[in-house]
Design a binder for these strands. Sequence first.
RNA 1: GGGCGAUUAGCUCAUUUGGCUAGAGCGCCACAUUGACGUUGUGGAGGUGGGAGGUUCGAAUCCUCCAUCGCCCACCA
Length: 858
Amino acid sequence: MKLSKTYEPKAYEPNIYQLWETSGAFKPSGDGEPYSIIMPPPNANASLHTGHAMFVVQDILIRYHRMKGDRTIYIPGADHAGFETWVVYEKHLEKQGKSRFDFNREELYQQTWDFVAQNRGLMEVQLKEMGLSCDWSKLVFTLDDSVVDIAYDTFKKMWDDGLIYRGERIVNYCTKHDTSFADIEVVYKDEKSHLWTIIFPLADGSDVIEIATTRPETMVGDVAVAVNPKDERYKHLVGKEISLPLTDRYIPIIADEMVDMEFGTGAVKITPAHDPNDFEVVERHPDLPRLNVIGFDGKMNENAPEKYRGLDVLEARQSILDDLEELKLLTEVKDHQHSVGHCYKCGTVIQPLLKDQWFIKVESLAKQAIEKIEEGEIKFIPENKGRVLVNYLKNLRDWNISRQIPWGIPIPAFQNIDDESDWIFDERVKKQVIEVDGKKYQRDQDTFDTWFSSAQWPYIVTKYHDSKELEEFFPNNVMETGGDIIFQWVSRMIMMSLYREQTIPFKDVYLHGLILAEDGQKMSKSKGNVLNPQGIIEEYGSDALRLGLMASRSAGQNQAFGKDKVIAGRNFCNKLWNIARYIENQVSVSSSDSFPATNNQAPSPITAADHWIIRELNATTNNVATMLEEYRFAEAYEAVYHTIWDKVADWYIEASKGQQNSSMMLWVLETCLKIAHPFAPFVTETIWQTLDWHPKNQGLLISSTWPRHADYDSDQANSFEQLQLIITETREVLGIIGSKNIALLTNSSQLILENDEIIRRMGRVGYIQTADEESGLRLTSTHEHAWLDLDEEQIKLYADTLKKKLEVVANEASALEHRLANEGYIKNAPVALVAESREILKLKLNQAEHLKHQLKHL
RNA sequence: GGGCGAUUAGCUCAUUUGGCUAGAGCGCCACAUUGACGUUGUGGAGGUGGGAGGUUCGAAUCCUCCAUCGCCCACCA
């Protein structure tokens, strides 16, 4: 087949993907060990971002294991992305002049479903563009019935085990989105505000107590003032009553350890309904009420004094401050910086509000997870992330799983209409009201936190999916995801799987860092520095994107994504392409007697270069395998890159122009394609498909086997290294003196005489001759005896370099001598290392001799 | 307040049990060449590995302290 001069990804990539898919290459096959990776499901109705491009890591592992002969499966998913999608849909409603309050929950769910269906599919196309070799027939959507069934099953089990409770607790509430959030979803930002000091007079008028607050508006919800029991300043006041300003209520002064005597005035107002700490104080003082003064709309409610009702929080703050000022109860206003929780989506200040929600008791779950991680049952890459996770789990608080949005899995719980405290589990969530034992129950309006079902993803998509057909793939081998969701997702998957399946969900966790923009900043739409994978693929091709992402990147480390590496990747693809083009032109393929690697045939080396390249490819094949198994992707890629470029292209192919062994060239090409395939699947498969010596429509590279070790002769391989030294040194000398048509002379070297053609071509010497007497410039880097036929003038041009070389070599030699003179070194260092040092020293001394000798004649 | 990470060539970053002359990509300099590839070839310059101590025969790597930058968690009346 005639190939174009440069590789044009766009001309081949779509066809190649289709070829893989229709051939069934993505399905598990053979009877090897099961190997599975499940894809973290991308948002079903959004485009991929650069973070998703790191899924390439998963694909590299999958392709490598498939070639290695494992029964391999890579399962894709699509996420309904509860809150994310809801936000998008609500905006969509807003544009149409509607809101969530115009519809009931079923209607909203259906509408959102349709909306998602319309936009769905984009991300699938994009995942395919990246070449991800996943089994699309096994795709699971996070709202599929099978997912909901298992989520309900788990919820029921937890309910029965007493791990689920409903409680009125402080929740993080976004008044714009009308939903609560888990602690981890709240974003804290430092804000400049004030610390106000307010006088609270005692009811009997005998004294006053000053309190400090950053949220004066909540004072109308105060139920007590607390002081530290050890605080001498206030001891005499504990138990007395305060007449709460601006209200007609009387509240007690209580003692509680939580109060920091150093902060503010040492006296704290207690607002249990709007502050998590105060809530805890009230739990220790059960007589105190929980007075709710802020509504879910973010406005002061009917429990607030009439004057402030209906004002939003900030308006109420100002109004209350004005009133206090007027009453001369405001004694001090200080600048104060403190962190304030915000909705991670819209930035609205999160209100801590009291709400009945479903919670999961996490203590026992976290404990199990900690044990397994500490025992090393799950391996983290990078390692330290395991410790980070344990640290997090040790301080975990109960998990609020209720969300007040329609787009999600309805919580299967019903409340007795006549008895608020009577809740039952029931899966008939499509009904508003059900009847059980003659009692009427009303459905909870809330849906699950998306992470409640996502946390169960590993066993949902393997163990229980498709009538347990994929059971052998659980636990999964690797969970590969972004380090930024280790708490939200990874921790919960581990907890849920240990709880429900009594086993870890996956053996290894590989976490990639954030892909930062080229300027090192986080990518964000508002900064306008977002690079999306589609754009890169469009410009440079999919393989270039993959290679660019893998190069020089280490696990867990955030790193800027630069185009430089993508360009280097594209150039590498082109190099591969041209290697193939050259070999295919050279080799006569009329006879199909030799397609060595395809049939796992051993290559048939003849020349020194043949033996040498077998040795190099053997080594690289092994190294790459080892490094992939250790998740060292950047190093594995680098090994492939340099072996193919520096060794195959620059030495083996160049040498083949002097001495060609056709069948070896085929073997070399096939081996290169195989080791490069996990990294650059498109270009390698494209080339594979053009190999004329393969029977048509038979055998895809993706399904071929990882290269095997091939035999070679060590002496021959070493000989080729000597040739390389001769050629390199010759090039260097001739480069400096700028002369051509110089002769290389030798008196005895068979190697040189036998490789006349190669040395002449590659070393650019005019001719090679035997000579009895040495003259000109002796080559020093090889132990073959050879010299360049230069005259005095020419050698003088080289003298400076010669001197520098001598200096370097002499320094190295003396460093080695010094080291070898050190008794400690001889005694403690490994024997092989010492022997090696001696060997190198010998070499250096020898070289120095030659150099000195040469210089003497100048 | 607690935890984590980073600091290596002009730039972006690699380097796994501590051991050859610390590497790569891009950039830079010089040269070559258009019969595989200019998305090329050949040769080269460029680093006292943030700082200070320590352990060791030997430290970018292990320990201690310091500095700068970044992230996460918790608290913040």
